[in-house]
Write a protein that binds this DNA or RNA. Structure first.
Lengths: 135, 135
DNA sequence: GTAAACCTTGCCCCCGACGTCAACGCCAGC
DNA sequence: GCTGGCGTTGACGTCGGGGGCAAGGTTTAC
């Protein structure tokens, strides 16, 4: 299988595959004419990469999964290193979500305060944000 | 006030201030020697920028707020354009949070499945210790 | 036989918000 | 007058994940 077919079957581009090879993430054998040659195992590796990327993994974070598969394990996450990446990712996601929710609360508070200031100019000037910051 | 003092008082860097000026976001008057000259009003504008950035606004999104203040309004969000940015940002944050939560759920699912597979595999390789009552 | 479709390497480009020099000007203190 | 610490502009680097193009070689289809 050549690069174009692999790219199409995995739903990505040839440019991406060359990039992965450049990172050493998905090296390719070469045919006599210099063309990259892939097999079904490579397709499996590539699908693992794409699946993880879809969930928000960086390419480097997919490396343990790919190496785990390449080592002959049935799943990319059959190895301890992969599980550790899962754990780190979960913590990272939790942290990110928490920060976004806090930002959301702050923006919502500012927004409502601003709307109130616009609507009731003559009313009070103190910002009553006691209940606004709560969900 | 010169650039170093302003940067320090706003908790940012001179490089950032030159960048903001380059964007036309925070233009500076010039002293006779070519040095940038700022006043307290600029500090106010800069603080608005920094505050919004802290909540996740891009620099371009802070522009309506800065212009609102520069137009003489008491707050950066006293103008309709700023309120619209608030609304867009809230929607954007909600969307982002939702996507992250879904990603989190997917990763958690994969993780737990992988852990179960690992434990199950270990159990199948060795006689299962189902008799928890004995130890 | 030749055109289309594929492949190769190599290079620059993008985004955002600056960081990091380099090479120079200006000014205060001693 | 000299040192150190400010300031100036300009240019290039960073990070991730590739996109896009050029100039060539290869294969495939008609």
């Amino acid at each position: 299988m050549r690069i174009g077919e692999l790219a199409e079957r995995a739903g990505t581009t040839t440019r991406a595959l060359r990039y992965y090879e450049q990172l050493g993430l998905l090296p390719a054998r070469r045919a006599g004419n210099g063309y990259r040659a892939y097999d079904e195992a490579d397709l499996r590796l590539l699908r693992e990469i794409r699946m993880l990327q879809d969930v928000g993994f960086e390419l480097e974070e997919t490396r343990p999964f790919v190496e785990c598969l390449r080592a002959g394990h049935p799943e990319g996450d059959s190895c301890q290193a992969s599980l550790e990446v899962y754990e780190r990712k979960l913590a990272e996601l939790d942290d990110c979500i928490a920060r976004l929710r806090e930002a959301r609360a702050r923006v919502a508070g500012q927004f409502e305060r601003a709307v109130r200031a616009r609507d009731g100019l003559a009313a009070s000037e103190q910002p009553p944000r006691c209940e606004l910051t709560r969900e």
